[in-house]
Design a binder for these strands. Structure first.
Lengths: 111, 111
DNA sequence: TGCTTATTTGGCAATATAACCAATTATGCC
DNA sequence: GGCATAATTGGTTATATTGCCAAATAAGCA
């Protein structure tokens, strides 16, 4: 159903909507990272990192693979970070208050 | 600062991370919409709609313009919805558990 | 087996979100 | 001014999120 699809899309965005999780995603985008490495990036308690990773995994954004005693996380769909070209555009605009019809930052059908 | 930028990006994603707000954004992507029209789409209480709109506006995703006694909302950066090609890819993958190196859904530097 | 390292989970407190109703503000019309 | 319509804001309650500590689980090594 359409409603269900929207629910899932929202869940993905919501999962990405946290500074620490974003920092983790950026790190993971550079290649597989284990929990300890991600803690070094973010700085929170290890248990907190683990919970954030669970959120991202649960949303389907990352996957994990156990190697030895470490768990390595990777992006399941690397392009998720491309969106930031557009998000940054949201942040950047100060002046324009009307709808822009041009293609903005991405190729296809904006509206 | 880099940390601050991340905080703002997260705020934009977080604002989009709610089914009702997503439905509203889709409607608004089709052109300016006033609060009453959006209520018809979503179905919640008018006050709830108004609060959701405040969240989106606060994140910089939409802008508003008062005409008569109605307030019309529009997308500030229409491309925000393009991201869903990628979000849907996140939802669609069942099989692949390893990092994909190909371009996925969007043009440029995935990682 | 016992010890160390890596990660997850249970439990808890603080804070944030979401939704509704009721009341308020703002605009237009008579 | 007085009334109707459109939208926002105050107040409240229920629920979810976040972050930490402590405890549990899992894997490797002596």
């Amino acid at each position: 159903m359409d409603e269900e699809r929207r629910r899932q899309r929202a869940a993905v965005l919501k999962a990405m909507g946290h500074p620490s999780r974003l920092a983790m995603l950026e790190a993971i985008a550079g290649g597989e990272r284990c929990v300890g490495e991600l803690q070094a990036v973010v700085g929170s308690d290890l248990s907190t990192i683990s919970r954030h990773l669970a959120v991202l995994k649960n949303a389907g954004i990352i996957g994990d693979r156990k190697r030895g005693q470490q768990v390595f996380y990777h992006l399941r769909v690397p392009c998720v970070l491309n969106f930031f070209r557009c998000v940054d555009a949201v942040l950047g605009v100060e002046s324009l208050l009307e709808i822009q019809d041009d293609g903005c930052c991405l190729p296809a059908r904006s509206r």
